[in-house]
């Protein structure tokens, strides 16, 4: 990391820590929380979709599994939500390993892999809608009891700091992937799977493991969401909207880059707030996202972050 990049990172961290102190309202803090949360989920998608090139249309399945796992442990079995949180990550990771192993063993790649993940999410949604222990379509309410020991906060600034910690952790994981041997294996698989296999990489194992990591992260995100809103139902937990959001944030910011999902989440957060200020009708924000997605895939395969990197490269900087 160059001195310049280190300075930028330190400045960014200080600004992020100070942000809730200067934001004018609780509404603004909540927007910031959702942007950070979206960056975290986008990073979870990015681990599989970006670093390993396994485009998924159903990543919400891990998020939803985590949300239901910790919420059932907490609301039905009386566990402390902080203790239930790691279980959510485990559950998400286990589903990630399971779906990964099934799909990759069957040799599904590219579009076929994307479509099968979508179908898995749909199966989970329908099951959650019909099963007894998920309380079907009614969803599960978490009893409001705003104590920090209960993972509920009266002041949204605390959710902000939890979300910030999640984002920091996800950036660290992405950074490690960028540097490690395992990350290099994933990059080789993304660029050319057959060549990677010929080099002696255990492709099946690496891809499955990567889905496990990605699933565990998304599962941990599920608990955060449930504790923030104190409610989940099958559509929130397994609906296609969150899958698309995770994909958009990562693709638009820059899939396969460390800071891409964060950049994408901030950009989409601003677009969302701008369209909300313009009109109360639904849908306009996502219309803009869709157009941006097409433009990015067509013209900017490295996403918005590619713009910065290109400028840095022109200046002669490295390691952007």
């Amino acid at each position: 990391m160059s001195a310049r990049a280190r300075l930028l990172l330190a400045l960014g961290a200080v600004a992020a820590l100070a942000l809730p102190l200067v934001l004018p309202s609780n509404y603004a803090v909540n927007v910031a929380v959702m942007i950070l949360f979206s960056a975290f989920l986008g990073q979870a998608w990015n681990i599989a979709g970006g670093f390993a090139g396994q485009t998924s249309f159903g990543h919400v399945v891990f998020f939803g599994t985590g949300a239901y796992a910790s919420t059932i442990l907490h609301a039905t079995w009386g566990w402390n939500p902080w203790l239930a949180w790691p279980m959510a990550a485990l559950a998400g990771g286990a589903v990630g390993l399971g779906i990964g192993a099934l799909a990759f063993r069957a040799g599904l790649r590219g579009s076929y892999f994307a479509l099968v993940t979508l179908a898995f999410a749909e199966v989970f949604r329908i099951l959650a809608n019909s099963a007894e222990f998920t309380r079907g379509g009614l969803g599960i309410l978490i009893k409001a009891d705003a104590r920090a020991a209960n993972f509920q906060f009266r002041d949204p600034a605390w959710f902000y700091y939890v979300a910030l910690a999640l984002v920091a952790a996800s950036l660290a994981i992405a950074w490690w992937l960028r540097r490690s041997r395992f990350g290099a294996q994933l990059a080789a698989i993304r660029e050319n799977e057959d060549a990677a296999r010929a080099l002696g990489i255990d492709v099946l194992r690496a891809k499955t493991l990567c889905m496990g990591i990605s699933g565990a992260m998304a599962g941990a995100g599920g608990t955060f969401y449930a504790q923030k809103y104190l409610y989940i139902d099958p559509t929130i937990a397994f609906g296609v909207e969150k899958s698309v959001e995770m994909l958009l944030v990562s693709m638009i910011g820059g899939a396969g880059t460390v800071f891409g999902p964060l950049v994408g989440a901030v950009a989409l957060g601003f677009v969302g707030e701008a369209t909300r200020a313009l009109t109360s009708a639904q849908g306009l924000g996502l219309v803009v996202y869709g157009i941006i997605l097409v433009a990015i895939v067509a013209r900017l395969p490295d996403g918005l972050i590619g713009l910065f990197a290109r400028r840095a490269a022109r200046r002669g900087g490295r390691d952007a």
């Binding site: 249309f57 996502l286 996202y289 869709g290 157009i291 997605l293 097409v294 895939v297």
Partner: peptide, 9 residues
Amino acid sequence: LGLSIVIDN
């Protein structure tokens, strides 16, 4: 997918 997001919304 981008096209479908645009059309749906």
